[in-house]
């Protein structure tokens, strides 16, 4: 009676309340849930878990590797900087040494040149002195000759000794 009443209610009312279909729904739901549960818990979930774990492992490994590479790059940069610094220092040292060497050479060359110049100057001085001496001598001789000639022209007579004396006295002034 109750089943018939329920079936009658189901004809007009909500199929949800039709109790005669409940065993069917519940049975197939149970089957479905068991199948899904086994598919998920045996295959899908462990696989996804392992993939996720593997991925996070890969990512952290990659990050570690990147970190390491970064350290290496930093070390390489430091080494490069150091090499650059050393090279610069070496270059400065070489420049200083070369400069000192050149300075020294220059000094010695200058000294030599000075010596040579001094020598040449002395030589020239001697030559000039000699020339001057000759010139004075010549002038004296010419003056004496000229004086003698002039005295003779005036008609006076003067001996050579007197003229020499007078000339020498005049030249000294």
């Amino acid at each position: 009676m109750a089943a018939e009443a329920a079936a009658g209610a189901a004809e007009s009312g909500m199929p949800q309340l039709d109790i005669s279909t409940f065993p069917n729904q519940i049975f197939w739901l149970a089957v479905t849930m068991v199948v899904i549960y086994f598919v998920l818990s045996r295959i899908a979930l462990p696989r996804i878990a392992s993939v996720l774990a593997e991925r996070s492992g890969t990512i952290s490994n990659d990050i570690a590797a990147a970190e390491e590479l970064k350290q290496q790059a930093v070390a390489a940069e430091a080494a490069y900087e150091k090499a650059l610094r050393d090279a610069r220092a070496e270059a400065n040292r070489i420049i200083a040494a070369t400069k000192a060497e050149i300075q020294e050479e220059l000094a010695s060359e200058l000294k030599r040149a000075d010596a040579r110049i001094a020598e040449k100057a002395a030589e020239s001085e001697a030559a000039i002195a000699a020339i001057r001496a000759t010139a004075v001598e010549n002038v004296t001789a010419v003056a004496k000759d000229t004086a003698a000639e002039i005295v003779a022209a005036f008609g006076a007579k003067a001996d050579a000794a007197t003229i020499d004396q007078a000339i020498d006295a005049r030249m000294k002034e």
């Binding site: 005669s20 279909t21 065993p23 069917n24 729904q25 519940i26 049975f27 197939w28 739901l29 089957v31 479905t32 199948v35 899904i36 598919v39 998920l40 295959i43 899908a44 979930l45 696989r47 996804i48 993939v51």
Partner: peptide, 28 residues
């Protein structure tokens, strides 16, 4: 409709299982 009768409930639950298998198992 007996408890074991294949009905539209069965069909759509089977489709649901299929979709879940495609998504969670075949997809991965």
């Amino acid at each position: 409709i007996h408890w074991y009768t294949p009905t539209n409930v069965t069909l759509w639950m089977a489709v649901a299982v299929l979709v879940i298998v495609l998504l969670m198992v075949v997809g991965g």
